[in-house]
Design a binder for these strands. Sequence first.
RNA 1: UACCCCAUGGUGUAAUUGGCAACACAUCUGGUUUUGGUCCAGACAUUCCAGGUUCAAGUCCUGGUGGGGUAACCA
Length: 570
Amino acid sequence: MAEDKTSEGDHPGEQPRDFIRSRVAEDVAAGKHGGEVHTRFPPEPNGFLHIGHAKAITINFSIAAEFGGVCNLRFDDTNPAREDPKYAAAIEEDLAWLGFSWGDNLFHASDYFEQLYQYALQLVEKGLAYVDDLSAEETREYRGTVNAAGRKSPFRERSVEENLDLFRRMRAGEFSDGARTLRAKIDMASPNMNLRDPAIYRIRKVTHQRSGDEWPIYPMYDFAHGLSDSIEGITHSLCSLEFENHRPLYDWFLDKLGVFHPQQIEFARLNLSFTVLSKRYLTQLVDEGLVDGWDDPRMPTLAGLRRRGYTPEAVRSFLAGIGVAKFNSTVELVLLENALRVELNKTAPRRMAVLDPLKVVIDNWPAGEVDFLTAINNPEDESAGTRTVPFSGELYIEQGDFKADPPKKFWRLAPGNEVRLRYAFYIKCTSFETDPETGDVTLVHATYDPETRGGDSPDGRKIKATLHWVSAEHSFEADVRNFDHLFQTPNPMAGDDKTKFKELLNPDSLGLKTGCKLEPGLAEAQPGERYQFERLGYYCVDTRLSAPQAPVFNRAVALRDSWAKVQARG
RNA sequence: UACCCCAUGGUGUAAUUGGCAACACAUCUGGUUUUGGUCCAGACAUUCCAGGUUCAAGUCCUGGUGGGGUAACCA
């Protein structure tokens, strides 16, 4: 079944025709590049992938697959100062988890350092690039502003011979960090800032994670990226909107060098409510210990979502649902959550767990007797079968399922009221005890109807509420984490002050509940397994915090709760 | 104040390229139900504004308005 889902959507025609697919289809129809489609996903190994990256990944891999092509994985490792192989490993793991494969097409921009250097040499020879001695600060000054043209560097008119000599010496390591750069000679007055003689190479005597100390100079993104695309024969370079202004430069390098010319197409990146989708800000949360690492289940990273209990199918289904466009939008988080609910409703076995226990004593239950009842594992999937759960005279139910003074429309347990215990018996509340100090209900007394075993009554009397429960003596205690939104506001990045977002973190996002009472079979639950706790939500056994016979559960997503809505309305 | 891009229900996307505005989620109503879950039925938009072309405009043209991006030797 999982196979069906993975291959779904990988066939042309099943995906909605967004503007990118339309353009690619046109190119294929026109026989461009022999009708071939070849894409790539080019992450920089300097952080973990998040759901926003998953959008870019899905676009690149799915479009390639739909048109019978392949998608390369290429690490854009041109800045060794801030990159780390540990991130590359995590990225590969996330990609594989999502269900995409790149086969043998795993590349690194650093694979092309020599060829890129040769390309740069060609530009110098053509008089299209020059070595500049201006400092970083001077360069900024000379560049001008969006409203004022820049000025030409005094080193702009060096001869080809001198530039060649200087650039070769840069490569030989003769100059110190930042002493010179190689710049493209384009137009210091261009209204597009990217065209004001952008840097192509900078001097950085930093050991590279793959090429070691072979290179004292490293190419800049605009130069390395487009030419890497070209070297790999990428036909469609699909990236996010902020690179739109870079496309003229992307094209310029390829045109001037006369090499294979991929088409860059930009789409809007994903924004999700109640979270942040920027590697820079997520890195701050991790580094400052505001979350428990990149795979904290509250994080929108793929590692976090995975640990929380999301499935790759749910993530892909969500991504397919939101489409692809150029409009800068914010998708409601509930859409992601719903995608997971839809899948888990069909696949997750049901279990009973009481998170906020309240003890119920069945006063007419035969002392010491234990009954074993049959419970359906998944009403949506008959093949999931049934299981047996023990029932006794002392039970736990949810505190919220009893009210001494029930409000209107409250159908659950209350003095004199009868409810059904799922798969067990009807019980009627006879009395309750309270804590004299706090007034909290501490114990509920009830009687059961022996005729209702299994949850049906021979007289067919209607019962409005069905409660989940566990037998006190048979249950075991566990920690359950009822996660809430990482941020308190739908758009933490709204204000002008982008440093403010950390103040908007939701202090209650962890939702830790200890001493929860779970049905006995759950003690065997294995890390990564997902269950529906009846009437509560979908939970996943944490892969880090669980121990044998001591699972810790993460709430992946809550069930819809229409009673909560009624209550909220008053 | 320069350049580039964008604008369709509450949210995100469609609309066979000029022909009855569709789908999902959300919200609200009702029904079914041994999960207040699932499922089923119904409700919810004069397509940013103003002109123009046309028998016909979400779609084409002109002009506004609003939003996003851009001034790293980051990617």
